[in-house]
Design a protein around this nucleic acid. Structure first.
Lengths: 109, 109
DNA sequence: GTTCATGCTACTGATAGCGTAGCAACGAGG
DNA sequence: CCTCGTTGCTACGCTATCAGTAGCATGAAC
């Protein structure tokens, strides 16, 4: 996992790089949990259902390489300027999720 | 992978269910490749860099269970009404990807 | 009958992720 | 100096997921 940028980025289409980046476990979740501000690595872990630090660190590294997440020493991880742009672009999907769940039978509770 | 709806859906927050659904390999890609109309299972496979039919079938099943994808016998797989809504909500992220790639050094071409 | 395309499944081997434990660095308090 | 508690990060063994290839059953055209 060193020089390989992002799976699919060689197609030249940025959307493929993004699709591939987001299509990995915890990636979207991390970005989402960071929406209200920076979190320490351990706090982020708690927010993400205590996911393995192994994967979390890997995702954080990818996200930092992608320029979406930044790390302030001692203060934890937070969204970068681009990360916040991402989240803004993501919000319509949040709205969709609400409507989607409302029309789904698989939402008993 | 039988009765379990979607990881994280028990939190009651639909966004978690969506985040989790999308955070699986090929899920986002499938939805994206279906944007211009239905594709047969094999055509979809080609569009998805010849991904394993095993995973593709699994994703297709999940996507159908989620109500985002439909299957017309002989005609292939296509987005449902909700699937199209999803894609509409996804478009801002497409726009973001373009800007994002432009500001990234990791896009030599 | 043969041929072709459809959707789908069965394997085996590789990769990614999980769960737990632990390390090094830094600051506060004694 | 030492201890304590926090930080970010890594190692290890085990499991689940994915990859890659092959193959099945169905249906239409000929």
């Amino acid at each position: 996992m060193a020089d390989r940028p992002v799976r699919g980025s060689r197609t030249g289409r940025p959307i493929m790089a993004l699709l591939d980046l987001l299509g990995r476990r915890w990636t979207l979740r991390i970005l989402w949990e960071l929406r209200d501000g920076a979190l320490t690595a351990r706090a982020l872990r708690s927010a993400c259902d205590d996911a393995s630090p192994t994967v979390l660190q890997a995702r954080l590294a990818e996200l930092r390489a992608a320029g979406l997440v930044e790390h302030a020493a001692g203060r934890g991880y937070g969204l970068s300027e681009e990360g916040r742009e991402f989240l803004t672009a993501f919000m319509p999907l949040y709205a969709f999720a609400e409507r989607w769940a409302a029309s789904k039978p698989t939402t008993p509770g």
